[in-house]
Design a protein around this nucleic acid. Structure first.
Lengths: 199, 199
DNA sequence: CTGGGCATGTAACTCGTTACATGATTAG
DNA sequence: CTAATCATGTAACGAGTTACATGCCCAG
């Protein structure tokens, strides 16, 4: 009937995960999603439940018997697998970029400079932690390397975090001195980002 | 009454823009937003209208007389300026990161390799164009440099695009040969325009 | 056997998108 | 003067978030 409408990325991600991790209930799926794709695709528990219902109605997944609570383990149907492969083949949707930090910077003219430094400091701290995390994850993956696609996504995360780290200290008037000389290529491995035309 | 609830980033951006570009109607604000902050914050026309109404009710903006059509030019009130400054001071919201391309990559195991190369090729083309655009914009800004905060946001965009460009060719099995040796630091020159998108 | 926390699911609301309606403006 | 197109705004829907409800399970 209305099985026409194509998948949204969130639903597709859920199908992809179900394909890889087998029968699981809503809560479990949500947790696994956080771990497995959370770095580039957020997914709240409520969304998961809603999509599970929708996907079941479309026949893309089926639920087993009820477990404790009203919980049920879902698994992919053949139709679901087809729909998922179609989504994959169609290619990724357009990027939607939203960096709240950049909004703040853009209007920072109206912001007390001290406060601005504080905010940038917090941001920098968080980002250096994230960078370290990615670098670690990446070298772990390289060691046990089984999934080269997962590695590609982690590499992306690391490079992105590195770009942010390179951005932070290089805008002198904005940056708190304590961060101004942090080694941005830090964190174990990580070849330096090419400096490009940066100044 | 409920003027307590604090601003969301979209509403705040609109106040910030109104402060800088003075009285303007919904359509005009939408267009200016695309140009001024569109690189890191998207905003559809419909959102603009809804938020304008909401902001007016909260007393953060006022509308002048009706112009052609039901259009009215809005401007910031003192209360609006205060609310905006509070939002600025509170600091940016948490990042929400969503890269559809990485979802596709993550599950690309189930994707025909030829198709994967095609998709990556399109993506690469779009990104190199974007990189060139940022680089151009950045050097223009440096020349006429008046707003150092705007420059900071553009620099961020350029570094980010550069990181993506660095990521693309370095995952050999994924990348189409024709892009494998593109100079990723090339900023001023760029391949054709047009991000050929599929959704 | 009880009460506090956690696992699981639901409901209600806000935000974002898509599709539409209609008054102005201009080309011919 | 009419029709095509643009400018401006609205309505309806889909996706994302926040707050809540309640059964399960374990410490004491």
């Amino acid at each position: 009937m209305d099985s026409q409408a194509s998948l949204n990325p969130t639903a597709a991600a859920m199908l992809g995960l179900l394909a890889q991790i087998g029968p699981v209930n809503g809560n479990g799926l949500s947790q696994r999603a956080d771990i497995l794709i959370g770095e580039y695709w957020t997914l709240t528990r409520s969304q998961v439940y809603r999509e599970l219902h929708a996907l079941e109605q479309r026949g893309y997944i089926t639920a087993g018997a009820a477990g404790p609570r009203a919980s049920r383990d879902y698994s992919l149907t053949p139709a679901g697998a087809v729909a998922f492969r179609e989504w994959l083949h169609a290619g990724p949707a357009h990027e939607v970029i939203r960096f709240p930090m950049l909004l703040t910077i853009r209007f920072a003219e109206g912001l007390d400079p001290t406060r601005l430094r504080e905010l940038l400091g917090e941001f920098a701290t968080g980002h250096h932690a994230k960078l370290a995390y990615y670098a670690q994850l990446e070298s772990d993956l390289r060691a046990n390397s089984e999934d080269s696609f997962e590695l590609a996504t982690v590499r992306f995360g690391r490079l992105f975090a590195q770009a942010v780290a390179a951005w932070l200290p290089a805008h002198p008037p904005l940056v708190p001195p304590v961060f101004a000389d942090v080694d941005t290529t830090a964190t174990t491995s990580a070849p330096a980002l090419q400096p490009g035309a940066a100044s």
